Simulated assay, not measured.
Amino acid sequence: MEDEGYEGLAVLVVEGRTEFTLRATLIGGFQPLDGRYRWYGRLEAHEELTRLVGDRSAGVELRTTEGHAVGRITEPDLWNRYRIEGTSVPPFRVPFGLDEVEP
């Protein structure tokens, strides 16, 4: 079975006021120690996003064609791609039953 996740276009809303359309690569999984689903990934470099956020972290909402979720972006990597992470319902479809998982 492949990891649950999403790769494609997304809308990132930074601190409830500024929207950016960019590509996101996301994965996630259930964490049995705390009983929560954690999702994370990378956002493609976006010049305007870098100008707005810089090297700090920020609260965000991420919307994809499969859902939306609240998360946080952290400092960018060397290529100005921000890491994004969240807890609970992810912004992508998650198969919950074995009958929904593709072989």
Rank of each mutant, 00 (worst) to 15 (best):
L43K: 05
G86C: 04
T64I: 01
L62C: 06
E15N: 14
Q31N: 15
G35Y: 01
I73F: 08
G5E: 03
R42P: 02
T25F: 02
G29Q: 07
E2L: 12
V60M: 07
R36M: 01
G97H: 11
E102Y: 01
R17A: 14
R36E: 01
G54F: 03
P91W: 02
E66P: 07
T50V: 15
Y82F: 15
V11M: 10
G16D: 14
R56L: 03
T50H: 02
T50M: 13
G29E: 05
A10G: 05
G54V: 12
H68P: 04
D77K: 09
T50Y: 08
L98W: 14
S57V: 07
E44L: 05
E15I: 00
G54S: 10
A45P: 09
L98A: 13
I27T: 15
I73G: 13
E4K: 00
T87M: 04
E48A: 14
V53H: 07
V13E: 13
L9R: 11
D34Q: 08
E48T: 11
Q31L: 08
L22I: 02
W39S: 12
E15P: 11
L52R: 09
V53C: 13
T18A: 08
P95L: 04
F30I: 05
G8L: 04
R36N: 04
E61V: 15
R51Y: 07
R83L: 13
T50F: 01
T64Q: 04
V70Y: 06
R81Y: 06
R23Y: 05
D99S: 14
R56Q: 10
R56F: 03
Y40S: 14
P32S: 07
A69C: 01
P103G: 12
M1I: 09
P32D: 08
L26H: 00
D3E: 13
L49E: 10
I73E: 11
W39V: 10
Y82A: 09
W79L: 10
E48Y: 02
D55P: 00
R42G: 04
T65Y: 02
D55E: 15
Q31K: 09
R72M: 14
F30M: 06
I73R: 11
E100T: 03
T50A: 15
L98Q: 14
G8P: 08
E7F: 05
L33W: 06
E85K: 04
R51I: 09
D34G: 03
